[in-house]
Design a protein around this nucleic acid. Structure first.
Length: 938
RNA sequence: GCCGAAGUGGUGGAAUUGGUAGACACGAUGGAUUCAAAAUCCAUUGCUCACAAGGCGUGCGGGUUCGAUUCCCGCCUUCGGUACCA
């Protein structure tokens, strides 16, 4: 019987599907375990070998946990809203729903043939109305909530309205817009309904606000910073302007501190935690108000982390976009300031931030008054200050901040020294711990901490500032001018947004003729002719019926990509529930994700927004946990190994890799499928693939054409994409699974090279041969040998340790060693080979199932208990001691482990090789570490 | 600039707490089998040296230690992220 992997794999995939082997129940006597993958975006290109890496790792873990007696939920779905499908629709006119469904089919086929233990009965698709109904529902929940700083959680908006009508907003301690004004209960009652709605919008957790965006008129859309290159759009090269637009925002800033604190209780990679905490960017300090010294006395609020250095302020710097710049600039400085603003506007935010070497700025001609000394402080503008951060203005202390120092030096501004015993002629002094303040009135002689405290106290006493904690984290813009996204459950009456009642959800995407923005610059939904809300019939009706009394226009924006992915992990717990987002029973049973595997590129997007929604849902009592994933692992990227041929510029001849020295050659990508394991090119195949090379001479070395190799990102244009379908066909899914794990550590990025797969494929064949010989099962009931037991238990121990530490590459090696040893031992004992099949099962499930069945079992191997490691089989009585001289190992010596230090030393010194090494010298010292090493010094 | 990760044979990588550097594979070389090929099996394979002995070897330069891929200090390079965050 041959190892016919194609047949075996198809058979077991069918078996698992028919028997619903991996369907997880929402109740069980077993403990629960939830293993989650980041669900894929189903792109038109299908999967390449890099995609399944994380899925294979999580599948091994899920399968292992089933063997360990857990009720495992391992779901999969699709993040199926997104830009590529929309782009494709614009180009071809095909509805994104159609192309998306087709892509999902391809993905499913590709995933199925790798043998994942997914519970497909729980599949979700974010673009499915039965799913996005609940995305819309959460949006309504957020709209109907405000953040109470006193209780430190989200509360129903009704409780806020109640407070307003009984006591106004004076005692409300909420996270809200900065421009809120004070009102009393009677004021509130006197406001019109529209005025009340406007005020409430400033408190809601999702709200409409004017936000500055990168607007590209030609594309009719907002662009991200990295979609803009040199001031024009990456796509098409159209001009981009900064523009204020009314958009939906999420008040994630309300959760800044809790998002930071929560990081301490989850087991996520430290680099990822660092990325999130840097993104949240908490800094403690003070806000200080400076007033301009003209008649208008404009207040300029700044935030500083160093209020102790306030007497060192010698100028202020505003962002060029700061509102005050136009108002305070003097006549003489006007043209210079305007020119500078114009120059700044052309630079992208990215450019401004990356360039640290160029110092630029302009004096506005205006002065502010120092809050304590009352001296005039010149006000400058500079593009190192960003409008979007803090207040867009800084108090500049050149002696204590290097950037301020450089700015002052460059523009010849005074640099007063307020640090005792410190030379600041060359650079600023930034060591807080060694700071002693001087030349600072009431702060003189104080150390950093005390000076900060006192400075804040004095500022507060004078009403010129207060202690403050500042976060970099900004509210998240939630509107997109796109078609293929969730529609908002929102219509507009009298210009104010109104929520559609949850019982009428979902609000389905309307049909449109064109997926582009309208000619008037409205989002694509502006093309829909049936896109109005009837408050009487409670349904979507034609726009022509809009009367603004009972029928109103609907929101034209759609939600961003991260909307659908921010609660999908909870929806998996109860995916078909049409009455609730998930039943209480389901969420109380599954609680949270035990293991989440995905890429680190989502660190400050998906993974931060999901934590935000989770905390919000927790506040509202929908969830038992305020963190959704206990443990997270980042899998690394699989890069491609590109192949190159070398064409000589002059002659046009193509030279083999070894012949290109001293020649001027151009490397040209060759398709990696035309290259074998020895880097040898299939020239005929290449000429067939690139007919231009039909008549080109290929100059060979030793009769072969050897290509050059380079590691690059896997991409179509580099011809280095490897499709898992081909691998599965040629070597089988089990080989693919093992090889992806064997490539290297899960977290590390590593290059793919198909050549090496013959190693793991050969291993599977050897494994098979342990069980079969000449087509017949050769398992015996014989007692196993001592060596075989040792091999088995060594393997159990190592593999189990490896799974727990996600070191899957080393366990594949361990399997190879195990099979090599058992083969050498001619082991055919059932008591060894049965547990071996179980050990291998999480990694190579198809062959394991087949072996299990051939050994006489009728049920799937998937829940058979994992073998138990027994240390007694590994006990050793002696050890091969390395004997080293001055730290260098020279020879080894077999010695009993019972020997004492002294006995070991005596035995080693008596050895003839020791005497030979010493050549008559007397050692200075002999280090004996029993069970480890002997080192002779001297 | 800042933050993070990483530099080990021809290649992917191993060495879990400071204790035999290069496990396991790929590739290469030689051999067996075969009409031949595929497949399979055996041997060798860090560099240096004709062999042996020896010497050199984990990005570079120092240090700690009986002993360093592992710890410390100072650099260099590559990759990923980014926010001049006051």
């Amino acid at each position: 019987m041959q190892y016919n992997f194609n047949e075996i794999e198809a058979k077991w995939q069918k078996y698992w599907a028919e028997n619903q082997t991996f369907k997880a129940e929402n109740t069980s006597s077993k403990p629960k375990f939830y293993v989650l993958d980041m669900f894929p975006y189903p792109s038109g290109a299908g999967l390449h070998v890099g995609h399944p890496l994380g899925y294979i790792a999580s599948d091994i873990y899920a399968r292992y946990k089933r063997h360990k007696g857990f009720n495992v939920m391992h779901p999969q779905g699709y993040d199926s809203f997104g830009l590529p499908a929309e782009q494709y629709a614009i180009q071809t006119g095909q509805h994104p729903a159609v192309t998306t469904a087709k892509n999902i089919q391809t993905y499913r086929r590709q995933l199925d043939q790798i043998g994942f233990s997914f519970d497909w009965s729980r599949e979700v698709r974010t673009s499915d109305p039965s799913y996005y109904k609940w995305t819309q529902w959460i949006f309504i929940q957020l709209f109907n909530s405000w953040y109470n700083k006193d209780s430190d959680k989200a509360e129903a908006i009704d409780t806020l309205i109640e407070r307003f009508s009984t006591g106004g907003n004076a005692k409300v301690n909420a996270v809200c817009d900065a421009d809120i004004f004070k009102f009393s209960a009677s004021d509130w009652k006197g406001f019109s309904s529209k005025e009340q709605q406007e005020i409430l919008l400033k408190y809601r957790l999702t709200y409409l606000a004017k936000t500055e965006v990168n607007w590209c008129p030609a594309l009719g859309t907002v662009l991200a910073n990295d979609e803009i290159i040199n001031g024009v759009s990456e796509r098409g090269g159209h001009p981009v302007v900064r523009k204020k637009m009314t958009q939906w925002s999420m008040r994630i800033s309300a959760y800044a501190q809790r998002l930071l604190d929560g990081l301490n209780k989850i087991d996520w990679p430290q680099p990822l935690k660092d990325a999130q905490s840097n993104w949240i960017g908490r800094s403690q300090g003070a806000s200080v108000v400076f007033y301009t010294n003209d008649k208008a006395k404009h207040p300029i609020e700044v935030f500083t982390t160093r209020p102790d250095t306030i007497f060192g302020v010698s100028f202020m710097t505003l962002a060029p976009e700061h509102d005050l710049v136009g108002k305070i600039t003097t006549q003489e400085q006007k043209s210079a300031v305007e020119a500078y603003i114009k120059a700044t506007a052309k630079r992208s935010e990215r450019d401004r931030m990356a360039d640290v070497k160029t110092i630029s700025g302009v004096f506005t001609g205006a002065y502010a008054v120092h809050p304590f000394t009352k001296k005039p402080i010149p006000i400058w503008i500079g593009d190192y200050v960003l409008a979007g951060y803090g207040t867009g203005a800084v108090m500049s202390v050149p002696c204590g901040d290097q950037r301020d120092f450089d700015f002052a030096k460059h523009f010849n501004i005074a640099i007063p020294n307020i640090f005792e015993g410190v030379d600041i002629s060359e650079k600023a002094f930034t060591d807080k711990e060694k700071t002693i303040i001087t030349n600072s009135d009431f702060l003189n002689g104080l150390k950093y901490k005390k000076a900060v405290k006192l400075a804040i106290y004095e500022l507060e006493k004078r009403g010129l500032g207060e202690g403050k904690i500042n976060y970099r984290l900004r509210d998240a813009v939630f509107s997109r001018q796109r078609y293929w996204g969730e529609p908002f459950p929102v219509y507009y009456a009298d210009g104010m947004p109104q929520m559609i009642a949850p019982e009428h959800l979902p609000i389905k995407l309307p049909k449109v003729e064109k997926y582009l923005p309208t000619e008037t610059g409205e989002p694509p939904l502006g093309n829909a002719s049936v896109w109005a809300w009837c408050t009487e019939k409670n349904e979507v009706v034609p726009n022509s019926e809009i009367n603004h009394t009972s029928i109103f226009p609907l929101e034209l924006n759609t939600m961003p990509g991260w909307a659908g992915s921010s609660q999908y992990f909870n929806r998996y717990m109860d995916p078909h529930n049409d009455d609730e987002i998930f039943a209480k029973d389901a969420i109380n049973y599954w609680q949270d994700v035990d293991l989440y595997i995905g890429g680190s590129e989502h660190a400050t997007g998906h993974l931060l927004y999901s934590r935000f929604w989770q905390k919000f849902m927790f506040d509202k009592g929908f969830l038992p946990k305020d963190e959704f994933a206990k443990k997270l692992i980042n899998q690394g990227m699989i890069t491609g190994t590109s192949a190159f041929i070398y064409r000589e510029e002059e002659t046009g001849k193509v030279f083999s890799r070894g012949l290109i020295k001293d020649k001027k050659v151009t490397p040209i990508h060759a398709d990696v499928s035309l290259v074998n394991a020895s880097d040898e090119l299939d020239i005929e195949g290449f000429k067939k693939w690139q007919p231009d090379y039909e008549d080109v001479e290929f100059v060979l070395e030793n009769g072969k054409y050897i290509v050059g190799r380079e590691v690059e990102k896997m991409s179509k244009s580099k011809y280095n994409v490897v499709n898992p379908d081909d691998i599965v066909k040629e070597y089988g899914a089990d080989s693919l699974r093992l090889y992806e794990m064997f490539l290297g550590p899960l977290e590390q990025s590593k290059p793919w090279n198909t050549a090496g797969i013959t190693g793991v494929h050969g291993f599977l064949k050897k494994l098979w041969k342990l069980y079969f010989s000449e087509g017949k099962l050769k398992i015996t009931a014989d007692d196993p040998s001592k060596e075989s037991l040792k091999t088995l238990h060594k393997t159990i121990k190592k593999v189990e340790e490896d799974i727990q530490s996600f070191s899957f590459n080393t366990s594949v090696s361990t399997f190879m060693i195990c099979v090599n040893e058992l083969t050498a031992q001619k082991c055919s004992s059932r008591s060894i080979l049965e547990p071996l099949a179980i050990l291998v099962s999480p990694y190579a499930p198809h062959i394991a199932e087949e072996l299990w069945q051939k050994m006489g079992y009728t049920d799937s191997i998937s829940t058979v208990p994992f073998p138990i490691f027994e240390p007694k089989y590994l006990l050793e009585s002696s050890k091969e001691y390395p004997i080293s001289f001055n730290g260098k190992m020279k020879f080894t010596m077999e010695l009993s482990l019972d020997l004492s230090k002294e006995e070991i030393e005596t035995a080693v010194m008596a050895h003839e090789k020791t005497q030979a090494q010493l050549a008559g010298r007397t050692p200075k010292k002999v280090i004996v570490v029993p069970g480890k090493i002997v080192n002779i010094v001297g």
